[in-house]
Nucleic acid binder design. Structure first.
Length: 569
DNA sequence: ACGGGCCGCGCG
DNA sequence: AAAGCGCGCGGCCCGT
């Protein structure tokens, strides 16, 4: 019974099956990390079949990058239950203060390792190719051999101490790797997208389709209207500079053409400009060109970048997957006989803050579905909008305006929770590192930043103080955003486990197809929708217990079953 | 002609 | 109501 199955491109101990052929090597390890038999050398077309056979024994797969191996396996119809992504784990461990005493991070954490020009010899297996094609054409670098991958895995295991902090870090590593599997699977399945609905929507707003580079009829009409309203016949409305000059000429003395600033001014042209910008945005960001580039065979398959944000949130590459505007969400439609289950965590970050601060008052406020009303009832005389401004301002580090004025009131009402934020801010301002609940750490202050803090002149001091406050706002937000991202990873992993369990029991409960920070979408057979809705709720409860144990903070999830993503909110 | 930086706006 | 956090992307702008 193998504990682990290590997958790599080659072995330093064995020759490839034939020169130049795509190949892979699998080495089974027992629970203690000892090799079980010799490594198995496979040609590319043997790989998926072999993985499927080994998967029946439920090992934990260990590979350099999930994104290098799993898409190919999925394409061959093969899924795995559990895997360890060494690159993602390495990034977390390298910055972790919990792993700092164990040796794994020695010589890696003092800012050196983060620089591109750092000595590569000082790093663990580096230069892992971006994708499988590159892998097979790479020279057989011994740092990507199955022996090296196994060695790094064991080294990473040893880097996690057997302490409460270490166990949380272990959970983070597991959740991050599970996330990598989910990301590959979501891309494989794709978001169901109806090009006909999208095109109808574009035609309705912009007019008939035009060639790339041309301005659609409706957009050109608004441009003509705008030029008239600004009395600027030659105006290119896409040029912020020309626009600003034209605005100045009609008495709008704004410093930029951003909508938040123009809101302060009153002029008949501003409404026209607003309409132009909305239409232009639709055309350039999510118009016909976008549809051609990103939607194929009725699916939008964005690439998710797990851990792409320092806080642990995902990023995406291609198609702006995490910015699908509400205006085009109607094009997201389930296949025949299917429905979309869309779930989002209600006011996740303040609830996370309540958990971080073990703040019973805030936990009480979070009891109901509407946390901000709860806060309002406890400390703001029932004024929900004040409560929301104050809480968001506290988490983002707002000091001015209404949010600033409301802060003392918030601090008096929830001293434990606000204390967490203030401590994180002070640490960041002083150049220190903060960590999430599970132990993802913020980046260390750069040499450049530290040098800036050693100010001499008054002007330099002013800039240094500004830089310190900026960093403080980042670390303040990091603990909340990062811990929320951890909760979301656990939620995803729990959902995935339940979908696999259903499948193993002979049920089709559908697939995860989209994830957006605190929101998930599943594409499910219609008859499964109610069952899956309940499952997603249960997974959320389980995620909270997994992370925080039994605490009095609730993490309610809003779930809707819809026939169009536009109906989800 | 190319590309890095900035602006502006979409999402949470 | 305020403009405080984290991103990606398309277009413009300007240096090379």
């Amino acid at each position: 019974m193998p504990g682990y199955a290590v997958l790599a491109t080659h072995s330093t101990a064995q020759a490839a099956p034939e020169q130049g052929a795509a190949s892979a090597v699998v080495q089974l390890l027992d629970e203690a990390g000892a090799a079980q038999g010799p490594a198995v050398v496979l040609s590319g077309d043997q790989l998926a079949g072999f993985v499927r056979d080994v998967e029946a024994r439920r090992p934990r797969w260990v590979w350099a990058r999930t994104a290098d191996w799993y898409p190919g396996l999925l394409a061959a119809g093969c899924t795995v239950e559990r895997a360890c992504d060494l690159a993602l784990s390495r990034t977390i461990l390298r910055h972790s203060t919990a792993a700092a005493e164990t040796g794994y991070t020695v010589g890696l954490r003092s800012g050196e390792a983060d620089r591109e020009d750092a000595d590569p010899a000082a790093l663990p297996p580096a230069r892992i190719p971006e994708n499988q094609d590159a892998l097979f054409s790479e020279p057989r670098d011994e740092r990507t051999s199955v022996e090296a991958v196994a060695a790094e895995f064991l080294e990473q295991q040893r880097a996690v101490p057997a302490t409460p902090r270490g166990r949380r870090l272990q959970l983070l590593l597991a959740a991050e790797s599970a996330g990598a599997l989910v990301a590959a699977e979501m891309r494989h399945h794709g978001i169901p997208w109806r090009p006909d609905v999208h095109e109808a929507l574009l035609a309705g707003a912009l007019g008939p389709r035009v060639a790339p580079g041309a301005r659609p009829a409706r957009l050109e009409e608004v441009a003509v209207e705008l030029r008239a309203a600004l009395r600027a016949p030659g105006l290119n409305p896409d040029s912020p500079q020309e626009l600003l000059r034209a605005l100045h000429r009609v008495g709008v003395d704004a410093k930029s053409t951003g909508q938040w600033e123009l809101r302060e001014y009153s002029h008949p042209a501003l409404e026209v400009l607003q309409r132009y910008k909305k239409l232009s945005r639709l055309h350039t960001a999510n118009g016909w060109a976008w549809l051609d580039a990103w939607v194929h065979d009725g699916r939008f398959r964005p690439e998710y970048v797990v851990g792409g944000v320092v806080t642990g949130r995902w990023a995406s590459r291609g198609g702006g997957a995490l910015q699908i505007p509400h205006t085009i969400r109607d094009a997201v439609r389930p296949d025949d006989g299917h429905l979309l289950v869309v779930a989002d965590a209600a006011q996740l970050e303040p609830r996370i803050l309540a958990a971080l601060g073990r703040d019973n008052g805030l936990a009480d406020a979070a009891r109901g579905r509407d946390l901000y009303q709860g806060i309002a009832d406890q400390g703001f005389g029932g004024d929900r909008s004040h409560a929301k401004i104050a809480m968001l301002g506290a988490m983002y580090g707002s000091t001015t305006g209404e949010a600033g004025r409301l802060m003392p009131q918030l601090t008096r009402t929830f001293p434990q929770a606000i204390g967490v934020l203030e401590r994180a801010a002070r640490t960041g301002e002083a150049g220190g590192v903060v960590g999430t609940y599970l132990g993802r750490c913020s980046p260390a202050a750069s040499e450049r930043w530290l040098a800036g803090q050693r100010a001499t002149s008054a002007e330099e001091q002013r800039r240094a103080d500004g830089a310190a406050r900026t960093r403080g706002r980042f670390t303040r937000n990091f603990v909340v955003q990062g811990t929320a991202a951890e909760w979301a990873l656990c939620w995803l992993a729990e959902i995935r486990l339940r979908l696999r369990a259903a499948r193993a029991a002979g049920r089709d409960d559908g697939e995860l197809v989209f994830f957006l920070h605190d929101e998930v979408m599943l594409h499910v057979p219609a008859e499964a929708a109610e069952r899956v809705s309940a499952m997603v709720q249960e997974a959320a409860e389980r995620a909270a217990v997994l992370m925080f144990g039994r605490i009095p903070v609730q993490f309610p999830v809003g779930v809707v079953v819809v026939g169009s993503y536009a109906d989800a909110k």
